[in-house]
């Protein structure tokens, strides 16, 4: 499984307009929906928010990895967004989130989301990767940050 293939230039934003956690999730979901990777926005949003209630995916260091496993998802994908101002995401370190990965996987996708989370976390452990993602200007920059 090549995780980088789960990103798409149709699902990146380098200037998220959202100001709240819920708006950020909505904005990411909208990109996913417009790209035809989601059959039902509301159903998927419920899955993501349910996860957030149990445990905020604001993992600190300016990163949030909201994710949802739901039958409304067409295929495993990652939607990427950057907020220059930062958004309060109930993060573990209390700091605003700037870099967002929305992971969406179908109901029957077994451990796929775990592999994606593991891949992203492994890369984000490096400060230079986080910097490159924060400063990314186009899709190529995002992919190159992971190389």
């Amino acid at each position: 499984m090549d995780i980088k293939m789960m990103f798409s230039k149709e699902r990146v934003s380098f200037d998220l307009k959202a100001r709240t956690k819920e708006e950020a999730i909505d904005e990411l979901i909208e990109m996913l929906y417009k790209d035809g990777k989601l059959k039902d926005k509301e159903s998927f949003k419920r899955a993501v928010l349910k996860r957030e209630e149990e445990f905020s995916t604001g993992i600190g260091m300016g990163i949030a990895i909201p994710h949802g496993k739901d039958s409304s998802v067409v295929e495993p994908c990652i939607t990427f967004g950057v907020s220059k101002n930062g958004i309060d995401f109930d993060s573990m370190d209390g700091k605003p989130a700037h870099i967002f990965f929305l992971i969406s996987v179908p109901e029957d996708a077994a451990d796929t989301h775990l592999h994606i989370l593991s891949f992203i976390s492994r890369k984000l452990m490096h400060e230079d990767v986080r910097q490159k993602l924060f400063n990314a200007k186009d899709f190529e920059d995002v992919i190159n940050a992971f190389n």
């Binding site: 993992i59 600190g60 260091m61 990163i63 573990m92 451990d111 775990l114 592999h115 989370l117 593991s118 976390s121 492994r122 984000l124 452990m125």
Partner: peptide, 12 residues
């Protein structure tokens, strides 16, 4: 002690 490190292992 680091969430990213723990997640990176992908322990299932």
């Amino acid at each position: 002690k680091s969430i990213l490190s723990v997640l990176s292992l992908g322990v299932s």
